[in-house]
Design a protein around this nucleic acid. Structure first.
Lengths: 213, 213
DNA sequence: GTCAGCATACCGACCAGTTGGTATGCTGAC
DNA sequence: GTCAGCATACCAACTGGTCGGTATGCTGAC
């Protein structure tokens, strides 16, 4: 998700540098495979600085998920797709933005929270919980628009909350497929699934139109 | 995926014991966080036995993805949903089977290949490649049925190959959401997304029926 | 002077991988 | 039929290096 937030100019304190290093290294190698020494090296600080700001590696993981959550939250809250008058257009605008963000190597568009929770869901409940909040936060930001679009479409058996979570699920699945596809095909592999997701939302929410375009 | 294959009675050799231990521990802790010592302990063999059968931990990862691939392949090939006369019923039968397999803790239904590729996609191209083959193998097994259903529905802009991959993407995404949701809600969280996937397939492939049921 | 914000030096535990060895079973020459 | 020769399967102990974490010291701002 998100290339690199333009709003936060450059990490100044050791804490911010470590969090930025965490985003990069966790995306590349995962949480377990990223050592504290590597994080310090990437951030250009020493181990003393690390344990001054974080009581443990796990604590950095929690802070990293929080950092990621607020970064992505701000990014999508400020995006232009909110300006559309129609709720379905806003939802599809979100999907289109997500598609547009997918380019280059996997580690430039993958999700830090999704990556971390996969490794830490059993060993650290605090990391799992913050990652869950991060993903569900992204989901919740779409819930009102989905509710409006759902009400108009007359679709039954689907709640806006569930559909908002499903959007995030497909995005996470797309990232896994991208990682599996390999560097050369990663972006294309990921985009493919967001296109299917877009089609699902259109079929479900288009109202009176028939499914085929 | 798959609780535990009934056809392979019990691991006898150290190699098989290590692979079974790998399935369990990688699902629980991930690949990086699982040590060779842990694998040996779980398998009840010594380190010497480990490095007799595998030249490195990475080599076990490759063998594990292969083992997983053939286990799941056999399991789904033998499943009863193939008996349906209608191709769409076979596809939906597969989804229903996947839904039925989701119960209990995440580590009893999650995918070893999807878990491993997330951690190893950058550090080991051989592990990534085998995991990719495992996931795409599951996808390919549905391609003919999807092609038949697609042809009959008249849907345009979708290929059977892409749709088959998308099914696996949603499954992988569902597992991530399950891990994030936490132990108590994991299974329900995962099932939710397969229900959406089922709805998408129905909307797309149902032919002349309108989307809402 | 004191305290946040670091840096340096170090620790014990654990890591993947190595070593040197044993038990067992197959194979073919005699 | 038996036994040398050898491959396979496994074991226990060990190694160099890396791990997360700690103890302590410096330094400039207030």
């Amino acid at each position: 998700m998100i290339p690199n937030h333009p709003f936060r100019p450059a990490p100044l304190t050791a804490r911010d540098k470590l969090l930025e290093a965490g985003v990069k290294l966790v995306r590349q190698h995962g949480f377990s495979a990223t050592s504290v020494d590597q994080l310090c090296g990437e951030a250009g600080v020493t181990k003393g600085a690390f344990f001054h700001h974080f009581v443990s590696k796990e604590a950095l993981g929690v802070a990293l998920a929080d950092y990621w959550s607020s970064s992505t939250g701000q990014f999508f809250a400020a995006a232009r797709f909110h300006q559309h008058a129609d709720p379905l257009d806003r939802v599809l605008g979100y999907i289109d933005l997500r598609i547009a963000l997918i380019s280059g190597p996997v580690e430039s568009f993958s999700c830090v929270a999704g990556t971390m929770v996969q490794e830490a869901f059993r060993s650290s409940d605090s990391i799992r919980s913050v990652c869950n909040s991060s993903i569900l936060g992204n989901a919740a930001a779409l819930e009102d628009d989905l509710a409006a679009a759902l009400a108009r479409s007359g679709a039954s058996g689907v709640t806006a909350a569930s559909l908002s979570r499903h959007i995030q699920a497909v995005i996470q699945g797309a990232f896994i497929m991208a990682k599996a596809a390999g560097a050369a095909d990663a972006a294309a592999a990921a985009r493919e699934h967001l296109m299917h997701l877009r089609r699902y939302l259109e079929l479900l929410l288009a109202g009176e139109t028939i499914h085929a375009n």
